[in-house]
């Protein structure tokens, strides 16, 4: 179909793949923000002493954790319009990824908060602090570092999962690659290029996660020593 040399060909497909990669990053960032918001609210709600507060959030988490993200994407894409909810493909993809990863993030948040020694809460009460103050000033700052390694891993999983939205017509990196294959052929070059670009996008996250894992545990001790 074409006789370009490898370099020429790569130059030709680079702009389309670059645009696709940017869309992938965009989907990942929007979904990450959404997942963090949903995950924090859900994780905290699940710590409520009242069962009727916990119930809807437990149902949501179980529903999204027990089914496939791709099935969820297709479900939202095909079924929501039938019941009168019309979102564009980008929003549908970002919404489903937010809900899907939000369910996992909520587990991370919940278990991190529970991992804080109960004596910390008691000390806050003994100093007559309000519940919200104890939570914000005492519990969360200690729970947050506990969350980081798991959140880092989910960030990487989320970046990979953005490839799924290619199947609902969002022209991110994978879909851009598939379109180029349809147009030019040469699947080897194109899919290897796509693969490599994903790897390059993932590497900063891989390095960050490596760094977080090595630091895990020594958070408070480090503060003064490095002064």
């Amino acid at each position: 179909m074409n006789d370009y040399s490898l370099t020429e060909f790569l130059m030709r497909i680079a702009p389309a793949l670059g645009r696709g990669a940017l869309v992938s990053i965009e989907v990942a960032l929007v979904s990450a923000v959404g997942a963090l918001l949903i995950g924090f609210v859900t994780g905290l709600a699940r710590l409520s002493p009242h069962w009727y507060v916990r119930l809807p959030f437990v149902a949501y988490v179980e529903l999204f954790r027990s089914t496939s993200s791709l099935v969820q994407i297709f479900y939202f894409f095909y079924v929501l319009p039938l019941v009168g909810i019309r979102l564009d493909a980008f929003l549908t993809g970002a919404l489903v990824l937010s809900l899907n990863f939000g369910a996992y993030v909520s587990e991370v948040v919940r278990s991190a908060v529970q991992s804080v020694n109960p004596g910390q809460w008691q000390a806050g009460v003994a100093l007559n602090m309000e519940r919200a103050q104890i939570f914000r000033r005492i519990i969360l700052p200690q729970a947050f570092p506990v969350m980081l390694p798991a959140l880092g891993n989910y960030a990487l999983e989320l970046l990979k999962a953005t490839s799924l939205v290619s199947l609902i017509t969002i022209t991110e990196l994978t879909f851009a690659g598939s379109q180029l294959v349809q147009f030019y052929g040469r699947p080897t070059t194109i899919y290897l290029a796509v693969f490599t670009i994903y790897l390059v996008m993932a590497l900063p996250l891989v390095a960050l996660n490596h760094h977080i894992e090595r630091r895990a545990g020594g958070v408070w001790q480090g503060k003064v020593r490095h002064k």
């Binding site: 953005t162 490839s163 799924l164 290619s166 690659g177 290897l192 994903y198 993932a202 996250l205």
Partner: peptide
């Protein structure tokens, strides 16, 4: 490398390439 790249793209490589 295997962990950091999407399964979907890996499947395409195995299936089409």
């Amino acid at each position: 490398v295997v962990r950091s790249t999407p399964l979907l793209v890996q499947l395409y490589l195995l299936f089409y390439v």
